[in-house]
Simulated assay, not measured.
Amino acid sequence: MTDVPRLTLLTPHRVGPEQVDALLPALERACGTGDVAAVILRLAPSDERSLIALVKRVAPVAQAGGAALVVACAGLAGDLVAVSARGGADGIHVDKPAEGQLRDLRERLRDGRILGVGGIETRHAAMDAGEAGIDYLMFGGLYPDGVAPEAEAVRERAAWWAEIFETPCIGVACGEGEIAGLRATGAEFVGLEGGLWMAEPAILARVRDAFAGAGAAP
C-alpha cells in the first residue's frame, strides 16, 4: 500500500494512425504536468508492421516524460509481445486473458518487461492472475464497447487487493468524481481514461495538487 498513488493514463480504444497526431501532443503535455508512471496505449488491430510503426511514434513521447509505455490491442491476431518489443515499448497489457495465457506471456517477457492485466471481474480470477507473475492488476476502465464496471465495484476491488496483496494495482476513473475514492483505496496507481486527460488537460494539475495535499503530513 502507498500513501500517494501515481497516475496511469489510458488512451482511448482502437488508436490508429489517424488518432496518433492528436494523441501525441496531449500525451506530451500530460506527462509534463502530472506524476505519470505509465501509459497504456490501446491500439486498433492491424498488421504487426503498422502497429510497430505506431508504437515507435508514441514510445519516445511517453518515455521522455518518465512514463513506461504498455501496449494493448484487443482482437489482435498477431504477436503483441513482438509489437511491443520491436516498437520500443516497455511491456504489454492484456484484458480478460485466456486460461494459461498469462503464464505463457510471463515466460516471454523478460529483462524487466512489464506484463499487466485488466478486465478481471472476480476475486478468484484476480488471484489467479497474481499467481501468474503479472506486474500489475487493473480494476475498471472502459471496455472496447464503451461500457465500464460500476465505480463502486471498482473501488471495492481495488481496496481489497491493495490491502492484501503485494502486486501493485490500478484503479481506473472514468469520471473526475471517481478519483478521490480511488485515491483512498490505497491502490498504488490511479488510472485516468482518455476522455479525462485528453479532453481536459487541467485535470492533471488538479489531481497532482490534490494528491500532494492529501499525502502531506498534518
Rank of each mutant, 00 (worst) to 15 (best):
D90W: 05
D111W: 09
L137K: 08
A126F: 09
K96F: 10
D135V: 15
A98Y: 12
A199H: 06
A98S: 13
E156L: 11
A30R: 13
D35P: 05
G215N: 03
F139R: 08
G75E: 09
C31P: 10
L54E: 06
V190A: 13
A217N: 02
Y136Q: 14
A77R: 12
C169N: 02
L69K: 10
I134M: 02
D104Y: 09
K56A: 05
M127I: 13
G16H: 12
G78R: 10
G16M: 04
R14K: 14
Q63H: 14
K96R: 09
V172T: 12
R86Q: 14
I52A: 05
G91A: 04
L69P: 07
D90E: 11
L27E: 11
L105V: 08
G213V: 01
M1P: 00
L76F: 08
A126T: 10
R110E: 04
V39T: 05
E200H: 11
V61L: 05
L23N: 01
A184Q: 09
R29C: 12
A158P: 14
V36P: 01
A187R: 06
A202I: 14
C31I: 07
G100D: 09
R155E: 05
M1E: 09
W197K: 03
G213T: 00
G171H: 02
I40P: 01
E131P: 01
A158Y: 03
A162S: 11
M127A: 07
C169W: 03
G116C: 15
V83F: 07
L23V: 06
L109G: 04
A22N: 12
G116D: 15
I40D: 03
D21P: 07
H13G: 07
M138N: 15
V94Q: 10
D111E: 07
E99N: 03
C73P: 13
L51T: 06
W160M: 12
M198D: 03
R103G: 05
L69E: 12
R157P: 01
G130I: 00
A159P: 07
L192D: 09
R183A: 08
L10F: 02
R110Q: 05
V55K: 01
